[in-house]
Simulated scan of single mutants.
Amino acid sequence: MDKDMKKKDLCAKAGISPASVTKLGRNGHVSTEILLKICTALDCKIEDILEIVPDKELS
């Protein structure tokens, strides 16, 4: 999904820190609260911003 938004704009609209956006970009761990704030700000569903990729070690 592309809302034509810069990272700083997403931070401001969602009320999240730039560090959270950086973690997302690096496949880091973020809380479900952060994901909810992003979905609310972008008016989207969780599956629009999240993809579950099975861990290779669990396969």
Rank of each mutant, 00 (worst) to 15 (best):
Asp4Phe: 06
Val21Leu: 11
Ala41Phe: 02
Ile16Leu: 08
Lys45Trp: 00
Ser59Pro: 05
Cys11Val: 03
Glu51Asp: 05
Asp55Lys: 09
Ser31Asp: 09
Ile38Lys: 00
Asp55Glu: 04
Leu10Gln: 09
Val30Gln: 01
Ile46Leu: 15
Leu58Lys: 15
Leu36Trp: 07
Lys13Ala: 14
Ile49Ser: 09
Asn27Trp: 07
Gly25Lys: 03
Val53Thr: 13
Glu57Gln: 04
Met5Cys: 14
Ser17Pro: 11
Gly15Tyr: 14
Ile46Lys: 11
Ile52Phe: 06
Thr40Trp: 14
Ile46Asn: 11
Gly25Ile: 00
Cys44Met: 06
Leu42Trp: 01
Lys45Pro: 02
Lys37His: 07
Leu35Cys: 11
Val21Cys: 03
Val30Lys: 13
Ile52Trp: 04
Met1Thr: 13
Leu42Phe: 07
Ile52Val: 12
Glu33Ile: 03
Asp55Phe: 11
Cys44Thr: 00
Asp55Met: 00
Lys8Gln: 04
Gly15Asp: 04
Thr32Ser: 14
Asp4Tyr: 02
Leu58Ser: 14
Leu35Asn: 13
Lys56Cys: 02
His29Asn: 15
Ala14Asn: 09
Cys11Gln: 03
Asp4Gly: 01
Leu24Val: 00
Glu51Asn: 00
Asp9Ile: 15
Thr22Gly: 05
Ile34Tyr: 14
Asn27Thr: 08
Ala19Phe: 02
Val53Cys: 02
Thr32Phe: 14
Glu51His: 06
Lys56Asp: 11
Ala14Pro: 08
Leu50Asp: 09
Ile34Cys: 15
Glu33Gly: 02
Ile49Phe: 12
Pro18Ile: 03
Glu47His: 09
Pro18Ala: 15
Val21Ser: 09
Met5Ala: 13
Val21Pro: 08
Arg26Trp: 06
Leu36His: 09
Asp43Phe: 03
Asp2Cys: 13
Ile49Cys: 01
Glu51Ala: 08
Ile38Leu: 08
Lys45Gln: 01
Ala14Tyr: 13
Glu51Arg: 07
Ser59Asp: 11
Lys45Leu: 10
Met1Asn: 10
Lys3His: 01
Ile16Cys: 08
Ile34Gln: 14
Leu10Cys: 14
Ser31Ile: 07
Ala19Gln: 13
Ile16Tyr: 09
Ile16Gln: 02
Cys39Gly: 05
Arg26Val: 10
Met1Phe: 03
Asp48Tyr: 00
Leu58Ala: 07
Ser17Tyr: 09
Ala14His: 06
Ala14Trp: 08
Leu35Pro: 04
Leu35Lys: 06
Leu58Cys: 05
Pro54Ile: 01
Val30Thr: 10
Gly28Ser: 10
Val53Ser: 02
Asp43Ala: 07
Met5Asp: 03
Asp55His: 12
Leu24Lys: 12
Lys45Cys: 10
Ile34Arg: 02
Cys44Ser: 08
Glu57Leu: 09
Val53Ile: 02
Thr22Leu: 02
Asp48Ala: 01
Lys6Asp: 12
Lys7Glu: 06
Ser59Ala: 02
Lys56Met: 06
Asp2Lys: 10
Leu35Ala: 15
Leu36Gln: 15
Glu51Thr: 13
Ser20Ile: 06
Thr32Glu: 14
Pro54Gln: 03
Gly28Met: 07
Pro18Gly: 07
Ala14Ile: 15
Thr40Asn: 15
Pro18Asn: 04
Ser59Val: 13
Thr32Cys: 11
Glu57Val: 04
Asp48Glu: 01
Leu36Gly: 04
Leu10His: 12
